[in-house]
Structure formats: structure tokens, C-alpha cells
């Protein structure tokens, strides 16, 4: 790969995506540099989730280009394993494997996919669970954990693959209000360590605090974007302003 950290780590150019006749993305372009934290906000159904699901090829696109560290995602011969080693993803509904303990959930992909040595994977997994402040919960099954705890296991599970960029798809939307904070704190810690993050979120205060750049999407296009200070104080487009006035 000819990619260097001087180029964008994730680069979308004129991405189009539709489900049948329904157009979801209508020419989206954005760049994410290494170490950037970007937040994508917008009304429901504006294509935010689809956008980041396309980045790790969970959804395919019809037109345009998505480069992750120089690797083209919109390619029929895409090496999905190579892509997914670089891109970690956390979902709204955690999607832990219910039949595995927290520790096994975190260890499973490194052992199965990366063929890591079990002892090494276990040591890494324990360290990651400690990092997301779940020490002592290694042996618990997902069904025995709260939503916030499950979501932090899910974050640790993604981190175990040592990704270069993390995708967060409305990860607090399904949580109890009192557990939202612990998950956001975990993401904030990650961001401060320099992890490249792309977040889809409804937590405006959080977006303002951690994001380097905010993108506002509506009906499949990016309406407006900018650094948080200017974006929140000085939105130009009437659609952005209407959305912000409703949500803030």
C-alpha cells in the first residue's frame, strides 16, 4: 500500500447508495485524517448509519469510492478480512455473542480470525476489559450485564482487533440514561489516546466536546460541516439550524 499518514485515513468520494428504489446516500464526500474524531449528526433516516456501515463493507455502494488507508472498499475483489482488521465497529444494540462470556467475546476474533496464540489473546483481552473498567466481569455472560457494560465489552471486542479506525453507530441510543455516561467516557478516553473515530450520534454535548469536526447529513447528502465551535454557534444552512433548534 502506498498510503502514508499524510493522506486521509478514510476518504469518501461521491458515494451513492440505494436500497432498491430508495436513495439513501446521494453523493457523499468526506475525509478523515489519522487521529481525527468526527461526528456525523442528522435527523433519523438521513443515511448516517448507512454511511458508516459502508465504510467497513457491511453495505455495498453503487457508485463512488471509499478508501481506507488507500484500500478501495468499492471493489468486487475486496479483501474484507484485510479491511476489517483496520476498521473496528460498535453497534447500537451491542450485538455481543450471548453464548460467550465477556472475556470470550473479546478473545474470540483475535484467536479465530487473526490466529493469535490463546494465552496472548487472553492477556490482551483482560487488559482491554480493564481499560473499559470492567475488571471482575470477565466471566459474566452478556445477559448478566447492564446495557452500558455490554456496550463497553463490545468496544473492547473491537479494540482487540487493534483497528486503526473505530466506527461507532449510535452506540448510546439503546442505553439507559444513567449508563450513557460510562460509555461516552470510554470513547472519550480512546479519542484522547489518538484513536481515529467516526461517530454517528445524537449526543450533541458529547459531539461538541470530543469531535474535531462535525458533519450534518440530511436526505443522503452532507448539508454542512465544520469544527464544533463554528458549527454549533454559527450554522449557515436553515436545515441545520432547524435541526439544532429541535435537539438542543
Amino acid at each position: 500500500m502506498s498510503w502514508t499518514p499524510a493522506e486521509p485515513m478514510v476518504s469518501l468520494k461521491d458515494v451513492h447508495k440505494s436500497f432498491g428504489t430508495l436513495k439513501v446516500l446521494n453523493g457523499v464526500s468526506l475525509d478523515v485524517m489519522k487521529g481525527d474524531v468526527i461526528c456525523i449528526i442528522g435527523p433519523s433516516g438521513s443515511g448516517k448509519s448507512t454511511l458508516i456501515r459502508c465504510v467497513n463493507a457491511l453495505n455495498d455502494i453503487q457508485q463512488g469510492s471509499i478508501l481506507v488507508e488507500g484500500q478501495e472498499v468499492n471493489d468486487p475483489n475486496l479483501d474484507k478480512l484485510e479491511l476489517r482488521k483496520k476498521v473496528g465497529m460498535v453497534f447500537q444494540q451491542y450485538n455481543l455473542f450471548p453464548h460467550k462470556t465477556a472475556l470470550q467475546n473479546v478473545m474470540m476474533a483475535p484467536v479465530r480470525v487473526l490466529k493469535q496464540d490463546k494465552a496472548k489473546a487472553e492477556a490482551t483481552a483482560r487488559a482491554l476489559l480493564k481499560k473499559v473498567r470492567l475488571e471482575g466481569k470477565e466471566g459474566a455472560y452478556p445477559g448478566e450485564l447492564s446495557g452500558g457494560q455490554q456496550q463497553r465489552v463490545a468496544i473492547a471486542r473491537s479494540l482487540a482487533m487493534q483497528p486503526d479506525v473505530m466506527l461507532f453507530d449510535e452506540v448510546t441510543a439503546a442505553l439507559d440514561p444513567e449508563t450513557v455516561g460510562e460509555v461516552l467516557q470510554t470513547i472519550k478516553d480512546l479519542a484522547e489516546e489518538g484513536m481515529t473515530c467516526i461517530l454517528v450520534t445524537h449526543e450533541m454535548a458529547f459531539a461538541r466536546e470530543v469531535a474535531d469536526h462535525i458533519y450534518f447529513t440530511d436526505r443522503g447528502i452532507i448539508v454542512e460541516h465544520g469544527p464544533p465551535e463554528t458549527f454549533f454557534k454559527n450554522a449557515q444552512d436553515p436545515r441545520t439550524r432547524e435541526f439544532l433548534s429541535q435537539i438542543l
Binding site: N95, F97, M108, L114
Partner: peptide, 19 residues
């Protein structure tokens, strides 16, 4: 969605089916 999570972690089709 559980299958998707495994997919996002890089599991192959066969691995997802088996694990």
C-alpha cells in the same frame, strides 16, 4: 445483527456459521 457483528470483526462465512 449478531451475524453482522461477527462479520465486522472479520469472521468468514464458515466461521460465523460454526462459531
Amino acid at each position: 445483527s449478531t451475524v453482522e457483528a461477527a462479520e465486522a470483526l472479520g469472521f468468514s462465512r464458515l466461521q460465523i456459521y460454526r462459531d
